[in-house]
């Protein structure tokens, strides 16, 4: 293989005039972090609402939850991003469509919402399973004490359900970060995007993607560690994972 390895490339100035190639990659990392965190918040909030809807006795509620989950998890993420970015503005009334197209930083917002909604289906299903794994008597006991349905979920069911699903939620957070790379297809220059443009400018493809890989690994390692700490912090003495 005729390849000129050049690990000093990171310290060389990039052609955009924004500092070195390393600065370029780090700027991409920041975008990746921003879009992933925003997507994860959207996924957690809407996933929680939908997951709760799916556990309510009301037929309408569980039907809404069912439709949401099946819509967002049965379509490839790539197709969903295209839908939000290219198709939706054309389907909306003219003024709304125009507003979407002229939105500053449109790829960023579309990616955050698109990845967020895609992940919300997975959060919803896991939360539903977490709530379902609690003894039926828990809901009965808090209902019998006079707590309303909202209070029962807020103070009794959700605090336990979230503790139970924390380990799989960690994986979903990591998936959110990894899925954010798909946003490159709608023009978001995040970490993968910056690695690609570094490759195009410098022809150092292996160095560029090695660096991107390392940065993804580091970022996910931080997330895993933080979630471990959170797990330990909320562990209940004497109860399953508690000590």
């Amino acid at each position: 293989m005729n390849y000129n390895w050049n690990w000093h490339i990171f310290l060389e100035p990039n052609p955009m005039g924004t500092g070195t190639y390393l600065d370029m990659l780090l700027a991409g990392l920041v975008v990746t972090i921003k879009v992933s965190v925003l997507a994860w918040i959207i996924a957690l909030v809407s996933g929680t609402v939908i997951g709760v809807l799916r556990t309510l006795p009301s037929r309408t509620a569980s039907w809404i939850g069912f439709c949401w989950v099946e819509f967002f998890r049965n379509m490839p993420l790539l197709v969903q991003l295209f839908l939000w970015f290219f198709v939706l503005p054309e389907l909306l009334p003219k003024s709304a469509g125009l507003w979407m197209k002229q939105l500053p930083n449109a790829p960023f917002w579309t990616a955050a919402v698109g990845v967020g909604l895609f992940m919300s289906a997975r959060v919803a299903v896991q939360l539903q399973a977490g709530i379902g794994s609690l003894p039926r008597g828990q809901k009965q006991a808090s209902t019998a004490l006079g707590l309303t349905t909202v209070q029962t979920y807020r103070y009794v069911l959700l605090p336990m359900a979230f503790r139970i699903i924390l380990p799989p939620l960690t994986s979903e957070f990591l998936n959110t970060i990894k899925n954010s790379a798909v946003a490159i297809t709608i023009g978001l220059i995040e970490l993968t995007g910056q690695a690609r443009s570094m490759q195009e400018f410098s022809f150092q493809v292996f160095e560029a993607f090695t660096a991107a890989t390392v940065l993804y690994l580091l970022l996910n390692f931080v997330v895993v560690t933080a979630m471990r700490l959170l797990e330990r912090y909320v562990a209940i003495p004497g109860y399953i994972t508690g000590k």
Binding site: G137, A144, L145, G146, P159, Y239
Partner: peptide, 29 residues
Amino acid sequence: PKLRSRVGMVFQHFELFPHLRIIDNLCLA
């Protein structure tokens, strides 16, 4: 909810809220 709050109920499997300390189990409702 108001009516239920005036009738105490004790279950076969206790159904204490595992994430709350004993004192908070008694204070919540």
